[in-house]
Amino acid sequence: MGGGGQAPALSLLNGAADPQILPVVGVAAFAGGLLRRWMGERLGINNGLAQLFAAALLAGVVGGVATRFHVALDSGLVMMGPLLVLVPGPALMGATFDLAGLRLLIGLARLTYGLLSIVALSAGVLIGAGLADGVAPDPNAPPSDLSWWQDMACAAMASAAYGVFFSIPYRMLALPVIVGALAHGLRWFCLTELHLANASAAGIGCLLVGVVVEPIARRWRLPFAAVGFAAVVAQVPGSFLFRMAAGLVELQRAGAGAPLRLLAGIGADGGTALLTLVAMALGLVIPKSIWMRLDSRRCRAAEHERF
């Protein structure tokens, strides 16, 4: 049930300013985890997409109820916070790895699963919001205004909870927590001080993760994918994907008279999410590729010396 601890941290990183949001988000994420486990163990529904849809439906209902009873003012983050844990970042980033390596079939399979997961989450939260309150998540969510140390602390919490969420052994948690906090601090510096775009800042943060984690993972014989994804989970652009989905709903309601601002927002959110995922994948894969090439050269040199 690591999502119960990860969801509030991710909500803070994605602009949550009202402290009343955090316990509601944590409870909703915990309840969603219980619901998905109950569906799998008691009902025998092991379809991952169905479980994601059910958890998103519950998050939408909780957000609508919280808004109706004035428990939280920002219904969008109440609804999206529990779902940020469930965004299939590893599947989407793994798809970019496979497509870059020309492993097309498995890359397309992972990409399809990731996109279907986003559709299931978006449909669930929008239907749940409609059932409870009729208010969809706001596509114009405010950016995060955390200080650097708050940003790093939230990223460390998210990385630790991700490790618990995906059953990473506890002996491996220290590395992604520390490196993930440093990488998110570097991303914060790139965004606030250098005024870089979100994709560029996330790519630089992931590059730091790749440079640090790859040699340590090789030395300690740790799985690079598990440790690397745990370190960068806080940088996955889940909020942009959900904002794009909310914007598409608003576009459907507006019809032909949709304002250009709404169309521009949808395109900007979708483009930011895509570019961020690509930049994150490149940041992780470039150091790994360099180390693999160095290892192959060492092997060839050793073979020449032997003969």
Rank of each mutant, 00 (worst) to 15 (best):
L99H: 03
L77M: 13
N46D: 13
L105T: 04
L173E: 07
L104H: 03
V179M: 09
A123D: 08
R36G: 09
G101Q: 12
V285F: 09
L260V: 12
W148Q: 01
D138T: 12
R243G: 14
D133N: 15
Y113C: 01
L277M: 14
S11G: 13
S11Q: 00
L207R: 01
Q51H: 05
A160I: 02
W220M: 15
R243S: 15
V285H: 07
S11W: 00
R298W: 13
V87G: 04
G81T: 02
E250C: 14
N14F: 05
D133T: 15
V62H: 00
A17Y: 00
L175G: 08
A160H: 02
M280E: 06
S200P: 00
A59R: 01
A279F: 11
G210N: 06
E305H: 11
P23M: 02
G134E: 12
L108Y: 06
G63Q: 04
A225M: 12
F30E: 11
V212L: 15
P143L: 14
N46S: 13
I106A: 06
A54Q: 03
M292H: 12
G267E: 11
W220I: 14
L262S: 06
W220P: 10
G255F: 10
S117C: 13
R36I: 11
G255K: 09
P139F: 06
G238Y: 05
V71M: 09
T67C: 11
S75I: 13
E193W: 11
G267C: 13
G89N: 03
G180V: 10
A50H: 08
P215E: 14
G2P: 02
R221Q: 15
S144Y: 04
G270T: 10
D18R: 02
A141I: 03
Q235S: 15
R103I: 01
A183S: 12
F229I: 14
P19T: 04
L182D: 05
S239K: 07
P215M: 14
V85P: 03
P82V: 03
L49M: 01
W148A: 10
L126W: 08
W291G: 07
A16E: 04
R42Q: 07
G81N: 01
A234H: 01
A302M: 12
G4V: 10
